[in-house]
């Protein structure tokens, strides 16, 4: 029908187009205090834990063992970036909250009425969440590394050394990716408790349970877990059972993209 084609304005999705969607979602994310409290907390955790691990690494214990658990005391980069786990926890929860908070309050239904296709909202929200997280986490990661190396003194490395810059940037990327995974679970499950529980289970609990598997094939399974796959990019030298840094990160991103794709399909089909 000609009446339809004439009045349609292609490329101006929902009226504001891609720019409007991104601006809107930036306003939405920016206007919540939660965003800044959690990202600020994650940044502080990265720097402070990094300092703590670095400063205590050399103290040792009576038996010669010392330093933080689960970290290689002889790896200066791992020590200074060791705060990424609590940061990933926090940002993962933020990813969930930014979605489920909109859903439970009803704000999402108002938004979906404005954008009936719905998927642009999911994508715009994802892009903004990623950008905002990286904008805070990249400087935090860098600060954690520099502060840690300063604390280590002679044993420290410089940003120019092989793999150090990649591990620093990779740490921010890893934490951001966990945040997006939380967001994808938020879209899928709509409940804060369900999404946070699933995220923690998959990212933090499964690797622990995976450690109970027989050593002949257990590591081959564990390295495919999202949290483990992505962890290699945060290290200068990934462990023997881990993927190469960018390969592992690509695996993590694959999970995130897959979850988001399922989320888009489900969000479009489901009654809002």
């Amino acid at each position: 029908m000609s009446a339809l084609t004439v009045t349609r304005t292609p490329g101006r999705l929902a009226g504001g187009g891609a720019t409007g969607l991104l601006t809107g979602q930036w306003l939405a994310v920016r206007s919540l205090r939660t965003t800044w409290w959690v990202l600020g907390g994650a940044a502080a955790a990265m720097v402070l834990f990094g300092l703590l691990f670095s400063a205590t690494a050399g103290s040792g214990g009576p038996g010669g063992q010392g330093g933080p658990p689960g970290l290689d005391g002889s790896d200066p980069v791992a020590l200074s970036l060791g705060g990424y786990r609590p940061a990933a926890l926090a940002v993962g929860v933020l990813g969930v909250l930014l979605v489920t908070g909109e859903h439970t309050s009803g704000a999402l239904r108002v938004l979906f009425a404005a954008v009936p296709a719905r998927w642009p909202v999911v994508l715009a929200r994802t892009a903004v969440t990623a950008a905002v997280s990286l904008a805070v986490l990249l400087p935090a990661s860098l600060a954690a590394l520099l502060a840690g190396q300063a604390a280590l003194g002679d044993r420290g490395v410089s940003l120019g050394d092989a793999g150090v810059l990649r591990a620093t940037v990779g740490t921010a990327l890893y934490v951001t990716a966990i945040g997006l995974m939380g967001a994808a679970l938020g879209w899928l499950l709509r409940s804060t408790a369900g999404a946070v529980g699933t995220l923690f289970g998959v990212v933090f609990l499964l690797p622990v349970l995976g450690g109970l598997l027989p050593s002949s094939w257990g590591p081959d399974v564990v390295r495919w877990l999202p949290g483990q796959a992505g962890a290699g990019v945060t290290e200068v030298l990934p462990g023997p059972d881990e993927f190469a840094p960018w390969t592992g990160f690509a695996v993590l991103c694959g999970y995130v993209v897959l979850l988001l794709a399922v989320a888009v399909v489900v969000v479009r089909r489901r009654d809002a």
Binding site: A14, G16, L21, A107
Partner: peptide, 16 residues
């Protein structure tokens, strides 16, 4: 957690 103005600004931006 959002102000009334911000709530409306999100929608206004989205709809151009």
């Amino acid at each position: 957690g959002r102000t009334a103005r911000d709530h409306l600004r999100v929608l206004a931006a989205t709809a151009g």
